[in-house]
Design a binder for these strands. Structure first.
Length: 496
RNA sequence: GCCGCGUUCGUCUAGGGGUUUAGGACGCCGCCCUUUCACGGCGGUAGCACGGGUUCGAAUCCCGUACGCGGUACCA
């Protein structure tokens, strides 16, 4: 098995890449890279023309790339098993469906959607809560099993709409081994005669998936748990084609804090973006998202928490994937983000912060100035944009003063701040240094016989508009005398 | 409803019959550091869903129940 591992991530291009999909992709990638020579394949399952969204495929590719997940084979990354878009493999599915019909494991069905509805309605009325097109009901439907042979021929000849359905055995216990869950078994009677080929000539997921996984020599199918209950159908298909099924691994779902699948509406109401795109746009550190997602349903088995993508590749095994759903913990993601942010060189952070600043209309920021801000702010930000938001005062005079901070602006504040202003007002520019600025403050509080904070906080508010932030004196130094005096004067005027 | 899969601190998880007074992380709380806010350090809070078995011994194995989640489409 070693050296021949092939896994795939097979999203449907119906919108932005869902964060759960990203985790599935990640686990597949980690599994592939864990094994020497393992291959990670991207396959686009664009068989539903109605739900197709332009640009979705690009979004998937870009999102994976952003995370550092490299695709070995896929659209735009030629391999020996392409094409990698199902819409370009249509004939293949048709041939295979044909093959099943010939071997008696599938059949044509000519029932219209209305007729299907009627059948379901009828069955429901007579007390069957989940009507199925199955071994029993197919006997009273319009298909190549019930219609005379020539009528079937005629219908096909005439170009009548038809689908191809899987002929599920009436009774059988279908078992398979799941790499994560162990033995799983389903009764065939609970399955319906799955449509394999739709009337538009496109395959359904079930057919396409099985055919492609086999043809692409996929060794392990690692996918979300929502597929578990259709796996018996797939097992049947493998058998009818005479193929060895790949190993199956069904991943626990990512849940919303309030319970249930992390759906767009629900999650976003709870402040959790579901599209990978949103994390990219919010400038999360990709290492953080990757690390966080890897641990959502998996753990290395020791107490370690911080792992690079490369580390994760070494550590990842399917037997350490958990079985239960995992609730998305946004605060932990932020924690990871803070961690990776602090690990990064100031130079890189500065360059990125600059771009963010510019995109928000703060232009003309001096690089030398900006890079000195980074170490002052680094331990205080959760996301890179906060260099710009919480650190806005480094670039612009405060327009207003934070309400909470103002509680520290006391009766005697103007007097103290004024005294400080007077002390530093006639300094030369090269005297305007953090340590001198600090001792000047010390002098004032000694003279006035008040505590350090009695001056420091009002001064901070005057200059930054905020009641918290980086060490004040290096910040004052950076801002420069002119700016500091201007802000003090303004605050004195505004706040009295 | 039916079928399937799950269930260890609020959350992510370790632990898979005795090593456990159930470990770590996030969060939360407190203390220290710091005359801001953070970072960091230290400490604390909090959990084996329930009921039966099996066993000398069960968080760990078995069976039920409850609860949660998924599926039940010519969607993936």
């Amino acid at each position: 098995m070693e050296g021949t591992i092939r896994v795939r991530f097979a999203p449907s291009p119906t919108g932005f890449l869902h964060i759960g999909g990203l985790r599935t992709a990640l686990y597949n990638y980690l599994f592939a890279r864990h094994h020497q020579g393992g291959k990670f394949i991207l396959r686009i399952e664009d068989t539903d023309q109605k739900r197709y969204v332009e640009g979705a495929e690009e979004d998937v590719v870009e999102s994976l790339l952003w995370c550092g997940i490299e695709i070995d084979e896929g659209p735009g990354k030629p391999g020996a098993f392409g094409p990698y878009r199902q819409s370009e493999r249509k004939d293949l599915y048709k041939e295979h469906a044909q093959q099943l019909i010939e071997s008696g494991h599938a059949y044509y069905a000519f029932d219209s959607p209305e007729e299907l509805d009627q059948m379901r309605e009828r069955l429901q009325k007579s007390g069957n809560p989940s009507p199925k097109y199955d071994a029993i009901t197919r006997q009273s439907m319009k298909n190549s099993l019930t219609l005379p042979r020539d009528e079937v021929e005629d219908l096909l000849q005439m170009g009548a709409d038809y689908v191809v359905r899987l002929k599920v055995p009436r009774r059988e216990n279908i078992r398979f081994e799941d790499e994560i869950r162990g033995h799983v078994s389903f009764e065939a009677k609970g399955l319906d005669d799955q449509v394999l080929l739709k009337s538009d000539g496109m395959p359904t997921y079930h057919l396409a998936n099985v055919v492609d996984d086999h043809l692409m020599k996929i060794t392990h199918v690692i996918r979300g748990e929502e597929w578990l209950s259709s796996t018996p159908k797939h097992i049947l298909l493998y058998r009818y084609f005479g193929w060895e099924p790949p190993k199956m691994a069904h991943l626990p779902l990512i849940m919303s804090p309030s319970g249930g699948k992390l759906s767009k509406r629900k999650a976003e109401e709870e402040g959790i973006p579901v599209n990978t795109r949103a994390y990219i746009e919010q400038k999360f550190e990709p290492e953080a998202l990757v690390n966080f997602l890897a641990f959502l349903g998996w753990s290395p088995g020791d107490d370690s928490e911080i792992h690079s993508l490369e580390d994760l590749c070494k550590l990842f095994t399917l037997d350490r994937v958990s079985k239960g759903g995992a609730v998305f913990n946004y605060k932990k993601l932020l924690w990871y983000n803070e961690h990776y942010l602090r690990e990064k060189p100031d130079r890189d952070l500065a360059a990125r912060a600059k771009r963010i600043a510019e995109s928000r209309g703060l232009s003309g920021i001096d690089d030398d100035y900006l890079i000195q801000i980074i170490p002052l702010m680094k331990e205080r930000v959760s996301k890179i944009e906060e260099f710009i938001t919480f650190g806005k005062f480094f670039f612009e005079d405060p327009e207003e003063y934070d309400e909470k901070a103002l509680k520290k602006w006391k009766e005697n504040s103007p007097d103290l701040v004024k005294a400080y202003r007077d002390k530093i007002a006639d300094w030369e520019a090269d005297q305007f240094k953090a340590d001198r600025l600090k001792s000047a403050l010390q002098e004032v509080i000694d003279e006035k016989e008040v505590g350090f904070g009695k001056l420091m906080m009002p001064l901070r508010i005057a200059v930054t508009g905020l009641g918290f932030g980086p060490d004040l004196f290096p910040a004052l130094e950076l801002l420069g005398k002119e700016t500091v005096l201007r802000r003090i004067d303004r605050a004195l005027q505004e706040l009295g």
